[in-house]
Design a protein around this nucleic acid. Structure first.
Lengths: 412, 412
DNA sequence: TCATCTTTTGTAGAAATCAACAATGGCCTT
DNA sequence: AAGGCCATTGTTGATTTCTACAAAAGATGA
């Protein structure tokens, strides 16, 4: 579509309300428009009602942009962009959250964000459209200042702040601390992110249930929480100061166990990132928790019973090493030698060594696992030492071999 | 300098010899010029004798470009560039090898390299200079074809081929194999690079001495060798097929020991890369050997008695992990918890755990190293388990802790 | 200052691990 | 078919490691 709007001021006032202004913008652009405050509460929306998308409907019904839409817009960087610049931003459709194509612009007085204008568009936006949008922002600014619409400092709105902490958009400690004060969120001390992943999307009632349960169990306290489709994301603080890391792990462990019993929720996965003292690193903790979940997908047996990044052990970095080995064209000579020997003599030295190392160099345990006599295992190990020069008393060598054996398994 | 050469052909022949042609080019460019064949032997050089640099003098005296100059030009990619394109290349001065600023161009018939023209310049080269250079290349080509100057297939020249293998310029197996056939170099089977680093630059006599010694010892055979200032670089093939990796290690070990005794060479360092079957990976083996040497510089005590990449163990990748940990802002909770406890209670749990792991989880050994009773150590370990939840029977956890402790040491 | 907690060291019996040797059976070579 | 080599298992006794308990020294806090 797009229109040539002529040269005289299209926004001749006066307007008695924001609604009137919204309608005017809508008329000029031929599309639905909403005006929101800085917390994404609706201040006004146009009566234009053609082709409205689900996101718009939901927004108007609740008088606030739905949580998941806000989250998505934070995640893909739209909102940060709006915060940073006063230029209009064109947003492609995001089907997952029922959002059609949009143009948005921030309304600001100096550097303070007063709110946003959103337009649902379905054509290729022209420079003239954008120009009109910028003019609209100015008029809306004046109107908002006149009507004394202040940024509402609602405590409920701290969820958005939480998403900023989780995604990579808040990296300045000062800003984080001042924001935290504003929302009365206590970010001092050690905090960690915990993510619970359910099989299906989480509904409010379940979330409230879980909150209640956790607070009652008194293992940790919840600082913030958010929902990302089927994941419940919690920022938690350990209670005791003696062994805070352990406490978080235990919390996730017992929670998963209990909930699977109680509420008959199956396939619940839980994961905790590490504790960080600096709130800047909450995003790192979040990434770690998600990494645990992805490892739990790929190695369900190996990390059974592990609920934190801490406990992941080598799974924290095995992918990383794997890639280095590939890039360097590295071959572990010990493994190569043993593999050749095995093939030639129809033996199982490689598997033997592998199991032995997995059993923490415990001969008896490994022998049992391999269904052979302990002496057999000792014999084989001596053989390996003679063949390769490997020293089973040297942790350096053992560790390297252990990791390379694991990487070998990844290659398949 | 730079000159406007007018429009008519500056290379009006005929020339009776390449020398005459070299002088003509030199006159036109006002600088010394050499014409070389594809093996960097001098075919002709101009009599222009102002401001000649040491590299030019050495080249003319030997009638061949010095080995170390060729090596450097391979290493920094100049020669590959000449091989790849028929455009002139401007080479900044390389002081280490006494080479002043140069312009060079390949002389080629179709895609075969016949030779090169080199000019030692001392001004900012203009496009006109380069154009003249390209014209010169054509004339030289014709002259070389007339004089039937063929590429000399000397067996001595295989050193340059070796440098190509070591640096990253030969990545195609086909090419490598055909080149190897040309120089009668046997690249089949497993090969590894061994580097010996002396305190001072190596001279021919020492190199010959070493060659003789190695061949006499019959542990490995030398396929190629080269010298890089104080490093002797060998491409070696193990003799036996039983434990080839071990053989190479033993070879380096005994060689370093013996030579330090015999020839009174102190501070000799030796290092072997891993064995590769594909000659494409000789460069990887070279990089590995150099990595061993650099680790020997940084951790002389820790890798005392280690002479191969294979045996380096975790030192193969500890730097790599270190960087990941920094980038992720990772803190190992176990270490953090123990450090805090140590500070509060004036204990040594962290150092205890560290030593215990270094001793391959052997209580008695670690107790001795720490000068405490074995029971004390057991007590402390139990304490650690209670505090952190760490399980000393789980290799995953132990390995991660071991590596993180090492990274912790690197941080200082 | 006393009571309490933590840490270290010692002792001793139980449990395990290790090292050496012998016996057996399989496979390969001659 | 015999001899040699290799791999496995069993036996035995020495050695070490683990565990529990006790005593003592040091630190901590009311």
């Amino acid at each position: 579509m797009g229109t040539n709007y002529g040269s005289q001021d299209p926004f001749k006032g006066p307007f008695r309300s924001l609604e009137e202004l919204a309608d005017r913008i809508s008329d000029l652009l031929h599309c639905p428009v909403t005006i929101e405050d800085s917390n994404h509460r609706i201040l006004a929306y146009s009566t234009h009602d053609e082709n409205v998308d689900p996101a718009r409907i939901a927004t108007i019904m609740r008088r606030k942009v739905p949580e998941n839409v806000i989250k998505t817009l934070w995640k893909n960087g739209v909102i940060p962009q709006l915060f940073e610049s006063e230029e209009p931003v064109i947003i492609p459709a995001i089907e997952e959250v029922g959002l059609g194509k949009r143009v948005a612009i921030s309304v600001r007085k100096n550097n303070e964000i007063l709110g946003f204008i959103w337009a649902q568009v379905h054509w290729d936006v022209t420079d003239e459209d954008l120009d009109l949008f910028k003019k609209a922002a100015k008029v809306v600014k004046n109107q908002m200042l006149q009507l004394q619409i202040k940024k509402r400092k609602s405590e409920e709105d701290h969820k958005e702040f939480f998403w900023q902490l989780l995604t990579e958009h808040l990296t300045d400690l000062e800003t984080i601390q001042s924001q935290a004060r504003k929302y009365h969120i206590q970010l001092e001390g050690s905090l960690a992110i915990v993510v619970f992943e359910f099989e299906e999307d989480i509904h409010q009632s379940l979330e409230r249930h879980i909150h209640y349960y956790i607070e009652a169990s008194r293992q940790v306290s919840i600082v913030c929480s958010a929902i990302d489709s089927n994941q419940l994301i919690l920022l938690v603080r350990p209670h005791s100061s003696e062994a805070p890391g352990k406490e978080i792990n235990d919390f996730v462990k017992t929670f998963v166990d209990k909930l699977q019993d109680r509420v008959n929720v199956e396939f619940l996965k839980g994961a905790a990132g590490t504790l960080y003292k600096n709130p800047v690193h909450i995003q790192d903790s979040y990434k770690e928790a998600l990494h645990v979940l992805s490892i739990k997908d790929r190695f369900p047996n190996e990390v059974e019973g592990i609920y934190s990044y801490q406990e992941l052990g080598i799974y924290q970095f095995i992918d990383f090493l794997y890639e280095k080995r590939i890039r360097d064209h590295y071959t572990n000579q010990y493994i190569e030698t043993l593999r050749e020997y095995d093939q030639k003599h129809r033996t199982d030295l490689l598997e033997t060594v592998s199991e032995f190392l997995r059993c923490d160099s415990n001969v008896n345990e490994a022998a049992k696992a391999l269904h052979v006599h302990a002496n057999t295992l000792n014999y084989r190990l001596k053989r390996v030492t003679n063949l390769t020069g490997l020293n089973f008393k040297d942790p350096n060598q053992k560790i390297t071999l252990y990791l390379d054996l694991m990487i070998e398994r990844l290659k398949q």
